[in-house]
Every structure is written in structure tokens, then in C-alpha cells.
């Protein structure tokens, strides 16, 4: 970091590239990104009921959270939704990744608009749109409905690592396989799938946390009995904020960060 302001910089190329105060601002932004999360975790160990008034270190809230039946039920709901939505979105994304490469320009523009729509449209609109649609077709609300909706917005997250991987494959590898006697199906099973495996795993992990962490869509589609973990946490925040919220949030944070880290390692190592 070069924070001295010189009018005519001389010396190494590295110093020439630096702009004064940019390093400082960057450090501040990193602090801004992480300190709030650290506070959530820190206060989860507070023995006081009033979350922000520190009394002493305690793990009681974790014990509390982990033994709570409602929370266990919500967790199970979340895991069911996330697993099925992940599996569905990965399969659809795999097909899309392969199909997109073979589509004409007009076709792929349309496809990209559909894939990107759930990301760019404000989530509330997507949530109430899906709600209205399900009510209209008389689809019962609950974890089934949540799973279907999650699959839609998990597709782009599953798609991107798979697509990145697919595009890095030398096309003549498929030709070589065909040349050596493999038909379309054998090429897919023996060449395409194994080559895409790291991308598929990374995409699945991303889809999983996106589903696991979603609140708004789940909130509107939950109906009775469809409470997922984030929906439950929202209820807790609304009722009474205790370090229990922090304990549960910390666990969810840990899970997300762990999963995204694994996904990162997989994509980095195999590329």
C-alpha cells in the first residue's frame, strides 16, 4: 500500500499502480463487510437475555436453540427444501449449460433473460407473483411450493460454475471420443459428466446455500407448517430479540460460509 501522495510518482511499477487512500478505504470496507457478522456471533455467547447488554460468556443459547423442537422442525423443512431444490436445479442447469452452447443467438438471448429474471427482478415481486400463481392454479402452499420456487432462482447459481467449466473444455475432446467409437450417450457419461463434475459440485453447493438462506420467497409461500429456518428466525426477531437469535444465526452463517468455501476450493483446484 502506498498512501503517500506524490505528484510525480517514480520508482517501481507497483507504486505507480497505487492511488492514495485507496488502500485505507479498502481496509475500511473489509471491516464494514465483516464486523457486523462478527457482532452477531459475539453476542450469541452473551448470557444476558437482552442481547446487546453483555453480562457474561455462556453457551446456554446454543443448547437452547439445538433442543428446541420448533427449530428442529424448521431446520428439517429447510434441509428438505434445499436438497430437492438443489437436485432439481442442478439437473436443469446441466441441461441448460449444454443446450445454451448449441442455441442460436435469438434462442440463447431469450434463455438468458429467463435465467437472469429471478436475480434481477426484486425478490418481493417474484415472491408474490409465485404466491398469486400458486393460488391461481390451486397449488397448496408449504414446503412443496417453496421447493418449486427455490428451484427457479437456484438455477442461475447452479448454472454459472457448470457453464464456466463447460466452456473451458477443449471441444476436440468430444470429437476425439466420438472418433474413438463413443456415441452421444457414452460421450456424455464418460467425458462430459466427469469433466463437469467439479462445476456440478460447486453449482450444487451454491444452489444449496441460496435455498437454505432464502427468506422472502419462503415467507410468502410457507403457509401453515411450511416454516423454514430463516422464516422461523424472522419470527424470533419480531417477537423478542434474545441471544438465541444470534446463536441460530451464527450456526446458519457458519454453514453458509463453510459451504461457499468448499465450493470455492473445488472450482479453484480443478480449473
Amino acid at each position: 500500500m502506498n498512501m503517500t501522495l506524490r505528484r510525480r510518482p517514480r520508482g517501481t511499477g507497483e507504486a505507480l499502480k497505487d492511488f492514495p487512500t485507496f488502500g485505507l478505504v479498502s481496509a475500511a470496507v473489509f471491516a464494514f463487510l465483516y464486523i457486523p457478522l462478527l457482532f452477531v456471533v459475539a453476542y450469541s455467547f452473551n448470557s444476558n437475555r437482552v442481547v446487546t447488554v453483555w453480562k457474561g460468556f455462556s453457551l446456554e443459547w446454543y443448547a437452547d436453540v439445538l433442543t428446541n423442537n420448533d427449530i428442529q422442525r424448521a431446520l428439517m423443512n429447510s434441509l428438505k427444501v434445499a436438497s430437492v431444490a438443489t437436485a432439481l436445479s442442478v439437473i436443469l442447469a446441466l441441461g441448460l449449460a449444454i443446450g445454451l452452447l448449441r442455441m442460436a443467438r435469438s434462442g440463447s438471448t431469450f434463455a438468458w433473460a429467463l435465467i437472469g429474471a429471478p436475480l434481477i427482478i426484486p425478490e418481493i415481486v417474484f415472491a408474490i407473483g409465485t404466491l398469486a400463481f400458486f393460488v391461481q392454479i390451486q397449488m397448496p402452499l408449504g414446503i412443496g411450493a417453496i421447493t418449486l420456487a427455490h428451484t427457479a432462482f437456484c438455477i442461475p447459481f447452479a448454472l454459472l460454475p457448470i457453464r464456466a467449466r463447460l466452456r473451458s473444455v477443449d471441444l476436440s475432446v468430444y470429437e476425439a471420443a466420438a472418433d474413438l467409437g463413443a456415441n452421444e450417450w457414452r460421450i456424455f457419461r464418460r467425458i462430459t459428466l466427469p469433466l463437469l463434475a467439479p462445476g456440478i459440485v460447486a453449482g450444487a453447493l451454491l444452489a444449496f446455500i441460496i435455498s437454505l438462506d432464502d427468506f422472502i420467497v419462503s415467507y410468502f409461500l410457507a403457509g401453515p407448517g411450511g416454516t423454514t429456518l430463516p422464516v422461523y428466525i424472522f419470527g424470533m426477531i419480531r417477537n423478542a430479540i434474545t441471544p438465541g437469535v444470534n446463536a441460530l444465526s451464527s450456526l446458519l452463517l457458519l454453514a453458509s460460509i463453510l459451504i461457499v468455501f468448499i465450493s470455492y476450493v473445488i472450482t479453484r483446484r480443478k480449473r
Partner: peptide, 16 residues
């Protein structure tokens, strides 16, 4: 050869 076809994306498109 061996790179699949555009219709591999059809289920995903219909879903979306």
C-alpha cells in the same frame, strides 16, 4: 459431434 444439442436446455427453459 458429442457436444449435445440445444434441446438439452428445453426442460430448464420450460421450468423457467
Amino acid at each position: 459431434a458429442g457436444q449435445g444439442s440445444w434441446w438439452a436446455g428445453a426442460p430448464g427453459l420450460f421450468y423457467l
